[in-house]
Amino acid sequence: METRFLSKSDSILITGAAGFIGSYLSKRMMELGYKVIGVDNLNDYYDVTLKQSRLDQLVSDDLFSFHRIDISDKNAMERIFEEENPAVVVNLAAQAGVRYSIENPDAYIQSNVVGFYNILECCRNYPVKHLIYASSSSVYGANKKVPFEETDVVDHPVSLYAATKKSNELMAYTYSHLYDIPSTGLRFFTVYGPMGRPDMAYFGFTDKYFAGESIEIFNNGDFDNDLYRDFTYIDDIINGIEKLIPNPPVVNDGAAHVVYNIGNNNPEKLMTFISTLETALSNATGKSVVFQKDFEPIKPGDVRATYASTDKLQDVVGFKPTTPISVGLQRFADWYVEYYGK
Results as ranks from 00 to 15, higher is better:
86 P>L: 06
73 D>M: 10
44 D>W: 00
83 E>H: 12
27 K>Q: 15
52 Q>F: 01
94 A>Y: 04
100 Y>M: 14
75 N>D: 15
39 V>G: 05
25 L>A: 10
35 K>A: 10
25 L>K: 05
42 L>T: 03
88 V>P: 00
20 F>Q: 04
79 R>G: 12
86 P>M: 06
26 S>L: 02
79 R>T: 12
40 D>K: 05
76 A>Y: 02
67 H>S: 11
38 G>K: 01
63 L>P: 05
55 L>Q: 00
26 S>Q: 02
63 L>F: 06
41 N>M: 08
51 K>F: 01
60 S>Q: 03
46 Y>T: 09
86 P>S: 08
89 V>P: 06
25 L>P: 04
53 S>M: 11
93 A>K: 09
86 P>F: 04
70 D>M: 01
43 N>D: 14
88 V>G: 08
22 G>E: 02
90 V>T: 13
89 V>L: 09
54 R>T: 08
21 I>S: 01
35 K>T: 05
27 K>R: 15
56 D>G: 04
98 V>M: 06
50 L>S: 09
42 L>K: 03
31 E>L: 07
20 F>W: 06
63 L>T: 03
90 V>I: 14
23 S>E: 03
21 I>Q: 12
87 A>K: 09
39 V>Y: 00
95 Q>H: 10
97 G>V: 12
97 G>Y: 08
25 L>D: 03
50 L>V: 06
78 E>V: 14
97 G>H: 07
75 N>W: 07
95 Q>R: 14
39 V>E: 05
31 E>W: 02
80 I>G: 08
64 F>M: 10
37 I>M: 04
21 I>K: 02
52 Q>Y: 04
29 M>C: 15
47 D>P: 00
90 V>A: 11
20 F>H: 11
40 D>G: 03
68 R>K: 15
85 N>L: 14
22 G>H: 00
60 S>G: 12
46 Y>M: 07
28 R>Q: 13
29 M>G: 07
23 S>P: 00
66 F>C: 11
46 Y>L: 09
58 L>Q: 05
78 E>F: 13
69 I>C: 10
62 D>H: 11
22 G>A: 02
87 A>Q: 09
44 D>K: 07
99 R>V: 15
48 V>E: 12
65 S>Q: 13
96 A>Q: 12
96 A>S: 14
69 I>G: 10
30 M>Q: 00
26 S>P: 00
73 D>V: 10
88 V>H: 07
83 E>W: 06
41 N>G: 01
78 E>M: 14
90 V>N: 10
28 R>E: 04
79 R>A: 15
49 T>W: 04
